[in-house]
Design a protein around this nucleic acid. Structure first.
Lengths: 196, 196
DNA sequence: CGTTAAGCACACAGGGCGGTGTACTTAACA
DNA sequence: TGTTAAGTACACCGCCCTGTGTGCTTAACG
């Protein structure tokens, strides 16, 4: 990503408190949820004084938004840029998620915050749309008849697998991948050369 | 507005407090979420004194569990028993949800509580499995080749539509229904003309 | 060096939360 | 009519939460 923006201060000074804060937020918000993670606990994990946190962020809400903004999902960045895969394989690779992943943090944030106006909720929407768009791009590249529709469908499958995995406490991504394969085969011209 | 934090409106409401509590829980937990609904607020909405609530329920956790248990999803329970529809139509009717529905409360509860051991989380799991099972039954009735698989797939689609609707604030069920139709057509013996 | 700002320690405010204690009132029914 | 169970009023507890105020330390850099 961009290593230019290091925050509002953009300073070369300091001992890196901001980064420690964000990385602690990544871990705790993800593992315990946003509402169940207190600022005191977060400060302790980041090895940062509470005062410092509130000098970098106006409040927890801003930190939450930054947490989502900085969350770099291996899915999006890792999968779509793999040139060693065919477009079709890239679409399917989006369903190969490590089982450690508890739940898409964007869904979790939208549910926990429960406020569509919250900056983090808005960012979650943007992100979901971006993923669907990238899926649509790849679908177009693969030669799908209706790439937008296929992208939206695959995005829905990913979200369904994430939600279901969370509720059932059992990996639902294989099921989603199976559906995805069927949809892709339906959408691509049958004569297309892909290994089956 | 300012008087919201008070209990009954002076005039005694008499018996039947328990039902009022549960129905207030249905509304508030669903509209605002579980964590954002305080017991004081709930008492005010139910027009019940706080003491009464804690004579009926040992704590908020038990009330939450009862809330899920009593949640009667008009959609699903109504759909599976409709004898005027063919099995295939019943499977598709599960995706005709009123847009008023904000989010499947079982997913919301699992995310908000964030504890797989919580009674409500366990019930959410049971419910999700039961829905998948009923979908599988109907799929079998419709003559699907692998009913269990189709049931699980359709259940995943429903959850995906619910989650995505919540995050994007836009109805995703039509997309899910389209996928469902494709899956069903793939799974059923092609000879059937979609009628009986 | 000295200056500057990043960071620290820590108490505390203010409020909401879930939950209780206690004494009281009333509806329902035998 | 008397008894009893259901409901009430409301102050109160302890806890944890986000967020501040204040004075101090220390690293970076000219």
């Amino acid at each position: 990503m961009t290593e230019l923006e290091k925050g509002p201060t953009g300073s070369r000074r300091g001992r890196g408190a901001r980064e420690r804060i964000i990385s602690a937020a990544q871990q705790l918000f993800r593992e315990q949820g946003i509402n169940r993670t207190g600022m005191n606990e977060l400060c302790a994990a980041a090895e940062v004084s509470k005062r410092t946190v509130y000098q970098h962020f106006t409040g927890k809400d801003e930190l939450v938004a930054e947490y989502l903004r900085r969350f770099d999902p291996s899915v999006l960045s890792g999968v779509f840029d793999r040139t060693d895969l065919t477009p079709r394989e890239r679409l399917l690779a989006a369903f190969d998620v490590p089982t450690t992943t508890p739940l898409c943090p964007y869904i979790a944030a939208a549910v926990e915050l429960h406020d569509p106006q919250h900056p983090a909720s808005q960012y979650a929407r943007d992100y979901k749309k971006a993923v669907a768009a990238r899926l649509a791009d790849t679908a177009r590249e693969a030669g799908a008849a209706d790439p937008e529709q296929l992208g939206e469908q695959l995005a829905l499958l990913i979200d369904g697998a994430a939600a279901r995995t969370r509720v059932l406490d059992a990996d639902a991504f294989p099921t989603a991948a199976a559906i995805a394969a069927a949809l892709i085969d339906n959408a691509l011209p049958a004569a297309a050369g892909h290994n089956r």
